[in-house]
Design a protein around this nucleic acid. Structure first.
Lengths: 248, 248
DNA sequence: CGCTTGATTGATGCCATTCAACATGGGTGG
DNA sequence: CCACCCATGTTGAATGGCATCAATCAAGCG
């Protein structure tokens, strides 16, 4: 999100590196009424809180690894993270991007099906999976929230499949930019700061970094968007971009 | 698309086309212990049953339409159906294939995000969405089952994104065949009957029908698979096929 | 200042698409 | 039963879009 990204790409170090903080006050939590714990009452929240801990991670750190035993789940308090899988030979596909108030990890399952890596510095509310599973089973309001969120995720993921399977490069990039416009709020001049590098955008769209760059350059030449430095984009002609997003 | 499709492509009249049957005996249901109602006791199942009805649909009929109001959800008793979305200009992407005991429809949401169409003749256990939502909220065991199923679906869908975004045609087709081997049981000689036409396979994999055909022909020439008539496939050299599935 | 990392631009080649012709086979009616 | 039809699937040739390989540019930083 911010430009602290410079420190970002440290080597893949596991979660041990992150800084654990003491308990915090759920009633003042930033994502109190959007996270899955929103429908719990104050005392239920407190007992859930007792199961978990806060964790701060720096951009580039990986929190969970694809295929590893599922031991942790978490709420995202702040920051942006990616979910990714990769082929045997190292080609990566980003299968989701999560923001503040989203839930990560795999409850009720033995293995984490994809890696989770911080794109920006992030704060998490971390729970041991087993304890979380037990708590969830005893609190239907929590499970209900989680169910709704998972159903939404599934809808979004499926609609992204249309992009991956049937849109051309132009349509993919256009769709991505419109999606970012909805997700990341702009500054005064309508410039949005992309939380992803060109490589990561390519990994989201199933393209190469060069193709992403070329598409964005051409859109700039056509006057549909304006580019600012590395991560800044301003959408000048949204309707035009939308027509491009229809794809092929 | 399908031959019986002529009857199907009537205006979005929803379900009216299918044949509704009377109530049935849940305790003898084929998918009794795999569907989401598995953890309900006999009397709970009976009262859920009272909310719904049985429906028989023929191959090619569409049960729910992308974007229409979400008024129905259902368990699949028998048969195979596809979930699909399409671009404005008619290019289709199949975003999921569902089998007996799977759940379809969008509970807790206003709109059905994708169309549901029968690939084979199918039997459904159909519920009005509102009534189902209410029942689910009162029966955490049902919601829990639905949550687990949705989490599994999400995992599968995300891993399919790796295929769509990063695998080449060979890898896509190989992965598809291996997936079918797991899902559809073979006859005595190890021949599996694909529930999908070439066009539908193409729509699952984000390819064209010609590319699918060419890949399968070449695999046949190489001796990895054997083709029987239109829909029959026998996997001769599974390890080889698996190495192809790694993609690119 | 060089050094490093990320992004852009250019040249070339390959693979999937496209357009087109042809094969197969299941179903129908004479 | 056979001739015919139509839907589905296969095969071929040509095109083009995206990937690949590679050079250059732009920033940030010690």
């Amino acid at each position: 999100m911010d430009s602290q990204f410079d420190l970002a790409q440290t080597a893949p170090t596991s979660i041990a590196v992150g800084r654990t903080c003491g308990a915090h006050d759920c009633d003042r939590c930033d994502v109190r009424d959007r996270a899955i714990c929103a429908d719990l009452d104050s005392s239920q929240r407190a007992s859930l809180n007792r199961l978990g801990r806060r964790l701060t991670v720096k951009a580039g750190q990986t929190v969970m690894w694809e295929g590893e035993e599922s031991t942790l789940v978490a709420n995202v308090i702040d920051g942006t993270l990616k979910l990714s899988t990769s082929t045997g030979d190292g080609r990566e596909q980003i299968v989701g991007v999560v923001y503040a108030s989203d839930f990560i990890g795999r409850p009720f399952g033995a293995r984490t099906p994809h890696s989770v890596t911080a794109l920006t510095d992030a704060r998490l509310c971390l729970y041991p999976r087993g304890a979380f599973d037990g708590f969830a089973r005893e609190h239907p309001a929590l499970e209900h929230r989680l169910l709704r969120r998972t159903l939404d995720d599934l809808d979004r993921t499926r609609s992204w499949m249309l992009l991956l399977g049937r849109k051309n490069a132009r349509g993919k990039v256009a769709t991505f930019l419109l999606d970012m416009q909805r997700r990341v709020r702009a500054d005064g001049k309508g410039v949005i700061e992309l939380p992803l590098s060109r490589q990561q955008i390519a990994d989201v769209l199933g393209l190469t970094i060069e193709t992403v760059s070329r598409q964005m350059s051409e859109m700039k030449r056509m006057g549909v968007i304006v580019l600012h430095r590395r991560r800044g984009v301003c959408i000048v002609d949204a309707p035009w971009l939308e027509s491009m997003a229809e794809g092929d």
